[in-house]
């Protein structure tokens, strides 16, 4: 039995904002984190506000040169969406490893981000894609880059009554390729011990104009690895530049000593290994390392 609460399923955004402005109110999307947290006592809301009927939080479509991704889009929908193939495929790769089929049917990308777990699988992909978080609330609409949305483990920039409505994702240039790699203790139904998203934006010849890297489960929030990126920018990736980038990546992360799924030493070592694997996968024969 779950601790009693009141359930509301508002049909308008203004009604949802009003309900969520009250203390003790929690937003419900897929429920795969919230109901677990209520059962364990980690959260004990008096009011649960189901967001699934709000049209503003649904959908995947092009808006100018950006893709709109509604917060209520499930992991399964992302995996099957034509929009998330090619340059944006990194996100469907990340969504495809979340939980298992049954979890992916319910879990939403907005929930994955709002739960603010340092190891959320979709977060490194969205960080590498430089997604912007779109927020609706009592003060109207605002948006911010995803790094600003994350304040700490389980903490986001959402104020009382505010709702993450979705993401604006700039489409990387054609020819860009990304991948999300992670390490887990068992193959299926596990949380990431470490995850790494890499996006390569091609330049001229063998040089890459830009390499974007983001990691999960290595710091209090999912993080971009900008120092390592700089070493790979406008470079031919060879043994030397890769060794330097791996070293910088290892030093730039700060996994906590009490990590549940992997030791800090393992995470540091594996960050470098995943970087090398990702670049060799994305650059193939161009990669000279």
């Amino acid at each position: 039995m779950l601790r009693p609460f009141d359930y509301y399923r508002p049909r308008t955004l203004s009604e949802a904002i009003k309900l969520l402005s009250e203390t003790g109110a929690a937003a419900l999307a897929g429920g795969t984190d919230l109901l677990v947290n209520i059962r364990s006592g980690k959260e004990s809301p008096q009011v649960v506000v189901d967001l699934k009927d709000l049209p503003e939080l649904h959908g995947i479509h092009l808006e100018g040169d950006k893709v709109w991704l509604g917060a209520l889009t499930t992991m399964g929908e992302i995996v099957n969406a034509a929009a998330f193939r090619g340059p944006l495929g990194i996100l469907s790769e990340a969504a495809s490893v979340v939980g298992c089929c049954e979890i992916r049917r319910r879990a939403t990308v907005g929930g994955n981000i709002c739960n603010a777990s340092p190891g959320a699988d979709t977060a490194p992909a969205l960080l590498a894609l430089e997604a912007e978080a779109a927020i609706r609330g009592p003060g109207g609409a605002r948006s911010m880059p995803l790094p600003a949305f994350y304040l700490g483990p389980g903490r986001t920039a959402l104020g009382p009554g505010e709702i993450l409505s979705g993401f604006f994702i700039p489409r990387p240039p054609e020819g860009s390729r990304g991948t999300y790699l992670r390490r887990t203790r068992v193959k299926g139904m596990d949380l990431a011990g470490i995850g790494l998203a890499a996006l390569v934006i091609p330049g001229h010849g063998k040089r890459n104009h830009e390499v974007r890297l983001a990691l999960g489960a290595v710091a209090p929030t999912p993080v971009r690895a900008r120092e390592a990126e700089i070493l790979l920018q406008d470079q031919v990736v060879d043994a030397l530049s890769l060794t330097r980038a791996k070293e910088v990546l290892r030093r730039s992360i700060s996994p906590r000593a009490t990590s549940l799924r992997a030791s800090p030493e393992y995470k540091r070592e594996m960050a470098g290994v995943l970087l090398e694997m990702a670049l060799s996968k994305l650059l193939g024969e161009e990669y000279a390392g």
């Binding site: 359930y7 399923r9 429920g31 109901l35 677990v36 049954e102 979890i103 049917r105 319910r106």
Partner: peptide, 10 residues
């Protein structure tokens, strides 16, 4: 397929 322990009856 879904997990019925993580869905409210309502």
């Amino acid at each position: 397929p879904v997990r019925s322990c993580l869905i409210l009856a309502v």
